[in-house]
Design a protein around this nucleic acid. Structure first.
Lengths: 330, 330
DNA sequence: CACCCATTTACAAACGATTGCAAAATGCGG
DNA sequence: CCGCATTTTGCAATCGTTTGTAAATGGGTG
């Protein structure tokens, strides 16, 4: 900056003010300085600026993977969400600091905050870190989390109405005449727990008596989902409908069906969750509960910036919708 | 840091040296200081540190999307690569600054460099930015690019041997008795161009005369791929084999086949590229050319750090392998 | 006890910006 | 041509570190 000052014959402070667009600098001087800076490829040093301003112009995007280290790799949901978040953050002239946290240690969120590298944090999913998020939210407001809204929760979440999503998916299966409806997912995760509750409510409303063997835990990775699907089919529970809590799990189940000589939707009608980009591509095309991730990302970043500005805005819950394709209707 | 110095009764410089692990500080003092810092949740301010050291402890990961804005969203390749890169970078104690560049403007790479926010750059793919990469590489060494190695190229690439990949895919189709082998992809992109060359070589070696209608351009997004697939099938070219340059394109083609009452592999044997996580999930399971992304990411980051240390290492080309599944063999 | 060498520690100058305050330049009426 | 109000500009402190250099400390020696 000293160089630019010398070249333009003004002082360093004038250059700084001109480049920052201060009203103290007349337009003519300002343009002249900007032009010299541009032609010499000069840009302000973000570290010096950050040091002085105590602002990083950076948003941290965090992908917490509790026990599911490989989830990131197999589930397109993360990339779709990440892409939309990146667009929204870039749009506001901020940079993105990405953190993939594979085995969270106690205090990991506080470490992220203490590091002072970001002006705010977005978490893509709560994973199994509800308690940690709650603890950190006590003293740090600049964070927004994608996920379920839980009772007694002190952090700001944006997410689909998971219970409703589980309800409409199950309800749709019942409307198709299915009676032995299975569930595949890991209800210990907050979002999945709520989808599970919606599933139970739909079953109860329809007066279905639940065979406990139909209610199977399954993790997010393709491998464990395949095992869970095989186990479900071998259990003798004989499902004729399935609500899977992700598209990847649903697809693994359909493959498992094939292994025992059955198919969807003839033998089992299948509904997934996320309506990820691969749902319409597979065969049979997969019915799925759709969340609007473009809107979700916009809302998350909007809320985050308002929180950064000191406004303690609340979270938002979005209504998902069911997209019916061939996997669930004959 | 001044606070920690006061608490421990030493000077600021001693604290700094202790926390940096300098050999000037005896172990006892050093542990004491570290303990006080830890218990008070103190960590050095990365901006002050970066300002003084001219080191950011950050690697920029860049996803250039030339004209294919939506590619990121539909192709799992990026997430798989990003996940592995993140692991490797985190392992070395560096942070990740993510940039998704949707419509590159002239000078965009230099802007990234000038911004001085990173110690080095990794590009996931060259997109159509070969010239820009070459230009920036003249004066900036700390970058590694995933993609094709081109003649007269001044930047460091890591990538699969695309020509070989195209060759083994096509060769496999020929071995299956197929004679009218189509190509779907956009050869104007460097990587795809090389895969195309491999395809042509395999066809020539087998003495196949190429119907130009079999050689169809197709972009990476699901929508444009679907159009290209429909066009190919409507052209009268009557392919009995297909080499698609991504799994998503291959899956779109298989869907298009279904729309005209045909199927894979009976009517057309299909091979994709990337062996992404969805390839084994779809039906029929998709044959695909596999690149080892775990190893690729490790190599890229390794080369990048050696370049940061001033060692002008060359790029690496990796041998891909064909994974045969049901889509290409009866 | 003075001297010297090795360890430890402290001082102070960068690093590259921003900004409150004061000084200089400008414009304008009298 | 002077004085005053109003722009413009510049000085210098500050942000939180690192690190070269110098000083202090401690423990043998002669």
């Amino acid at each position: 900056m000293a160089d630019i000052a010398r070249m333009t014959g003004v002082s360093i402070s004038t250059v700084s003010r001109a480049l920052a667009g201060s009203p103290l600098i007349p337009e003519a001087t300002r343009e002249m300085i900007a032009e010299v800076a541009r032609s010499h490829g000069y840009v302000v040093n973000p570290f010096a600026r950050g040091l002085r301003m105590k602002r990083t112009q950076t948003i941290g995007v965090v992908i917490p993977l509790g026990h599911e280290q490989r989830q990131l790799i197999s589930d397109p949901f993360f990339l779709e969400m990440l892409g939309h978040l990146a667009d929204e953050i870039t749009l506001r002239g901020y940079e993105i600091l990405l953190s993939k946290i594979v085995a969270p240690k106690p205090g990991w969120i506080d470490a992220l905050i203490q590091a002072q590298r970001t002006d705010g944090l977005v978490f893509i999913g709560q994973s199994d870190q509800h308690a940690a998020l709650n603890a950190s939210a006590q003293s740090y407001d600049q964070m927004v989390v994608w996920g379920a809204h839980l009772p007694n929760q002190d952090y700001c979440t944006v997410g689909a109405d998971n219970a409703y999503g589980g309800y409409i998916a199950t309800r749709h299966l019942i409307d198709q005449g299915r009676r032995r409806i299975a569930f595949l997912g890991d209800p210990s995760l907050p979002e999945i727990g709520q989808r599970h509750a919606g599933y139970l409510r739909a079953c109860q409303e329809a007066g279905l008596t639940l065979d406990p063997r139909l209610d199977a835990p399954a993790h997010f990775t393709a491998e464990t989902a395949a095992e869970a699907a095989d186990a479900l089919l071998a259990s003798g529970a004989e499902p004729d409908g399935l609500f899977a809590t992700s598209d990847v799990i649903a697809m693994e189940f359909i493959k498992a069906l094939g292994r025992v000589g059955k198919s969807a939707p003839t033998d089992v009608a299948v509904v997934g969750f996320d309506d990820s980009s691969l749902a319409p591509l597979v065969s049979p095309p997969l019915s799925s509960v759709r969340q609007d991730l473009t809107a979700a990302a916009r809302i998350m970043i909007d809320l985050l910036f308002r929180r950064i500005d000191g406004e303690l805005v609340d979270g938002v819950q979005m209504k998902p919708e069911l997209v019916v394709r061939a996997s669930s209707s004959l």
